[in-house]
Simulated scan of single mutants.
Amino acid sequence: MNGHHIILASQSPRRKQLLEWAEIPFEILVQSTAETYPPDMPVPEVPVHIAREKAIAVRQKHESLHDTGNIIIAADTVVVLGNTIIGKPKDREDALDILSRLSGNKHQVITGVVLLKGGQEIAFADTTDVWFHPLTREQIAFYVDKYQPYDKAGAYAIQEWIGVVGIKSIQGDFYNVMGLPVSRVVTELNKLMGNREK
């Protein structure tokens, strides 16, 4: 990548897979953060704020990453129903409740992305609208028990069974729902590297 070293500040297997699909060479470095945000922060700003904290934490841990040859990519995804952020389910009952609320309704998936290169920062949020078919209690319980979606915001992954069976339609970037709007990430990476073409 034009002599640049790219670091993904995420343990998400889905984000790792998406960058691999985009054929971007990278390594993974992760530093745990609280993933908290000010209570009065507007919802669309929340995932960007959390992503920025992840990127900064990795850069602070590894002094060499301040060099302009390194680019850190961090991301955070939230699921929003109405104006309420739905996080990762605490347990089985919480997962059942979350999916029951999403059933038959439209929600938004917002992924915030922050790219750091030396003193430069590119930050943005990408939003995808998702509509679920009405789901039966049996369908929801089957999904939760088989797929154990406890590490996923909104208690589901679009690329799993529930996405195939339960999602009526989406408007926006499909891969954003998986956890990374990868085409826009590639565009912004090219800008940071001074490479306007793909």
Results as ranks from 00 to 15, higher is better:
H5M: 15
T127F: 13
I122D: 12
T127Y: 06
A74F: 11
Y37R: 01
P13Y: 12
P181D: 14
Q11C: 02
N83L: 09
R14Q: 00
H133C: 13
V58C: 04
F132E: 07
A51C: 01
P13D: 03
G194F: 04
E35V: 05
D173K: 08
H62I: 05
I73F: 09
I28S: 15
A75S: 04
I50A: 03
D173I: 06
R92Y: 13
A9R: 10
K54T: 11
D129K: 05
L115Y: 03
R15N: 08
E23A: 11
F132A: 04
L96W: 02
E63N: 14
A125L: 02
V182M: 01
T136C: 14
P13L: 04
H5E: 15
D129W: 15
I158L: 01
H107E: 04
R52H: 13
E23C: 11
I86V: 15
T68N: 13
A141V: 03
Q120K: 11
A123R: 14
V177R: 00
V144Y: 06
A22R: 00
A22N: 00
G172F: 12
V58Y: 09
Q171M: 10
K117Q: 15
I170V: 10
K152H: 01
V113I: 05
K16I: 15
Y143W: 14
I86R: 01
E197M: 13
Q31I: 12
L102N: 06
D91T: 02
K54N: 02
W131H: 06
K146D: 14
T36F: 02
M193A: 03
P149Q: 03
T33Y: 03
I72K: 01
L81Y: 15
S32W: 00
K191Y: 06
V43D: 00
L135V: 14
I122Y: 04
V109R: 06
T33M: 07
I71Y: 12
A34K: 07
E53H: 06
L189Y: 12
F174I: 01
L189N: 07
A34R: 05
I85A: 04
D151C: 08
I50E: 02
P47Y: 02
A57P: 08
V43N: 03
V43A: 07
K88I: 03
D129A: 13
L115S: 07
G3N: 04
P39W: 14
K16N: 15
W131S: 09
G119I: 09
N70V: 11
I86T: 14
G118F: 04
Q139S: 14
S103M: 00
K152Y: 10
V114R: 01
G154W: 07
Y175P: 07
A22Q: 07
G118W: 01
E188L: 02
I85V: 11
P13V: 09
L8Q: 14
V109T: 11
K16R: 15
N190P: 02
I110G: 00
W131V: 11
Y147P: 05
P25F: 07
L65H: 11
E197F: 10
I72S: 03
Y147T: 12
